[in-house]
Simulated assay, not measured.
Amino acid sequence: MVKVGILGVGTVGASVANILERNADILEARAGKKIVVKHGVVQNMGKERGVNITLSTDPMDIINDPDIDIVVELMGGVEEPYALVKKALENGKAVVTANKALLAYHRYELQEIAGDLPLMYEASTAGGIPIIGALRNGLTANHIESIQGIMNGTTNYMLTKMINEGALYDEILKEAQALGYAEADPTFDVGGFDASHKLLILASIAYGIDAKPEDILIEGIEHITQTDVAFAKEFGYEIKLLGIAKKVEHGVELRVHPTLIPASSMIAKVDGVMNAVSVVGDSVGETMYYGAGAGGEATASAVIADIVDIVRGNHGPMLGYKKGLEGGSFELLP
């Protein structure tokens, strides 16, 4: 039996606990061992979580429990989860995280701390889309020529409404907030920062680049107007917020910004809160990955896939490299 502790039993954490219980039989058959959640940690014990697991407010109840094999970190934030994940790894526990901000700033430190211990993070980028596994494993034979994708569902929903229904930015932002797609302070999404964190994670796997959000161009959708939308349509284009990584002669370009895309292209047809990522390899050509980029069940699906891989022993090096690239990693270009 493999015992799991969940740091952060919110929407995603509750879905992880419930899916592990609901699909226990098929998961045991696929993993080869029974997987159970022993403990969960929350900030507010008074809030109903809808789970059948033991809860407390102290993360050390999980970190220091010798019976827990895998720590699932779903707290959000950067420095506090970094300290907890570091301690869990030092205590010999495998870790699964969905925390893109944590990885945007500390992925290389955590890789060094983890060593041969599993540290998995499929759910950190594009929700339920298995893009991390595709880059680390499925496309390992390729030099990656480019990555471009819709990596934030909130902004894609807003732009879709602006393009298809003529909605104004301020109106659709309020609607997105009412639907729960955007936070009360939407800057992280509409400013492009969420997408930048995901892009940096993918770029590390593709190119071995250790860059922070402050090192790359980030532009959001706050200044997109109906005039921009109409201009794009007139010339056969649509506007999408893309995260772009592109290999060029002397290095790699990384950027997040609104982009004019031919209306006939596949990625232009990705609407609403859905995500899509295109990866071009030198051998395979273009591959496309599409699906739900957020939501409790979709993200939990990716978390549990990582848990099952750990139980099976299928984890490999965290960022996909057993040794350094010959000649060093690619240079990040301005």
Rank of each mutant, 00 (worst) to 15 (best):
E286G: 04
I221D: 01
T287C: 12
D194A: 15
L202E: 11
M274N: 12
I239D: 02
D215I: 10
G180I: 12
A203R: 00
K198E: 14
S196I: 06
G285P: 04
L254Q: 01
I261Q: 01
K198L: 01
P262V: 08
G208P: 02
K246Y: 09
G291P: 08
K246C: 06
G180S: 09
G191K: 04
P262S: 07
I209K: 00
G208A: 13
A276N: 08
A203N: 02
L200S: 02
V280L: 13
A230T: 09
V248A: 07
T227F: 10
K198D: 00
T227M: 12
T259Y: 02
E234D: 12
P258C: 10
N275D: 14
T227I: 14
I218C: 05
D210W: 03
I244F: 04
S265W: 09
S278C: 09
L260P: 01
Y289K: 06
L200H: 04
I221K: 03
E234Y: 10
D228V: 03
G251E: 09
L254M: 08
E238I: 07
V279Y: 02
S264K: 14
A203I: 06
I244P: 00
I201T: 03
I205D: 00
T259S: 13
H250F: 13
L179A: 15
D228P: 06
T225G: 09
E253S: 08
A211L: 10
Y289P: 03
A276F: 05
H197W: 08
V270A: 05
E249R: 11
S283T: 08
V252N: 00
L254Y: 04
K246M: 09
V273L: 12
V190L: 14
G272E: 14
I267D: 04
A294G: 09
A276K: 01
M274D: 14
S204F: 06
V248F: 10
K212T: 15
A184V: 15
G180A: 11
D228N: 15
V284Q: 11
I224K: 01
T187N: 11
P213E: 15
L260K: 09
P262I: 09
G243D: 03
I261A: 05
G192T: 03
L199Y: 03
G208M: 09
Y290D: 06
D271I: 12
I216Q: 02
N275H: 15
Y290T: 12
Y181L: 15
V252A: 02
G251W: 06
F188M: 11
S196P: 04
G285Y: 09
A178Y: 11
D271P: 00
G251M: 05
V270H: 01
D228G: 05
I224W: 01
I221T: 11
T287L: 13
D228W: 04
F231W: 06
I239N: 01
E286Y: 08
I205E: 04
L254N: 01
E219N: 13
Y181N: 04
V256S: 02
K233Q: 12
G192Q: 03
E183C: 10
G272S: 13
P262L: 10
G293L: 08
F231E: 14
A232E: 07
K212H: 13
M274H: 09
E183T: 15
E183I: 09
G251F: 05
I201P: 00
S265A: 15
V273D: 05
S264A: 13
E183Y: 11
A195S: 15
E253D: 12
A232K: 07
G180M: 13
Y237V: 05
I267P: 01
R255E: 10
D194P: 00
